[in-house]
Amino acid sequence: MTQFFNDLFLVAMKDLRIEIRSRVIVNQVAPFAVLVLVLFGFALDADQRTLRLFAPGLFWVAILLCLLLAVQRSVSLEVINDSLLGLKMAGLSPSSIFLGKAMAVFVQMIFLELFLTGGVIIFYGTSIDDLALWIVSGLVAALALSATGTLYGALASGLEVRETLLPILLLPVLAPVLIGATKAYSGALGESVTNGWQWTGLLSLFALAALALGAMAYGVLVEE
């Protein structure tokens, strides 16, 4: 079991070190996310009251688009020089590889959520009413997104057309997360009277199911 966690952290730290070195999230994905928020503002041509109302939904759509980029990047790390072959030859368990890669994507998603929260506060004039709900729902949604994204990234990784196929495969599956996270954030930002904790509970179930399924299925996907 100790070896399993060692392997998991080894893979996660490797992916995060590469991200820190290459600065793809900071220099490319984060500016893209801000651009999406600004463009939503232009497209809706709305006053701050309307933007505040739609802020939770716009926030999570922007996060989903960023997730696609983060997952594509996570997959490409293993595909470019066929490093996944080395991971298999080294005898790492597929579950530890999956959870390690999902953990790295999770950390990136948390960074982007914090960054974009600043964005919606500045551009849309929102404020956080329920800090606990905002933190917990953000963490749980990031977990659900990173686990599902990593799993579907592996599914698409062996295909020539993975860059274009991944969004088609992944976005419909993440629709429940988008709905749940939007409802929970609406509660946290005080934009609706929805019980955000109930939606956070549903997000937790989704995250646990995605983690369990990913840990079980990843080996089959990378072997094929």
């Binding site: 490797k14 070190r17 590469i18 290459s22 790390l77 020089n81 066929d82 490093s83 072959l85 030859m89």
Partner: peptide, 14 residues
């Protein structure tokens, strides 16, 4: 077993 294929198996940014 160690296998060296056509690709390096290395991480370019490390």
């Amino acid at each position: 077993v160690a296998m060296l294929g056509h690709t390096s198996g290395l991480y370019e940014d490390l």
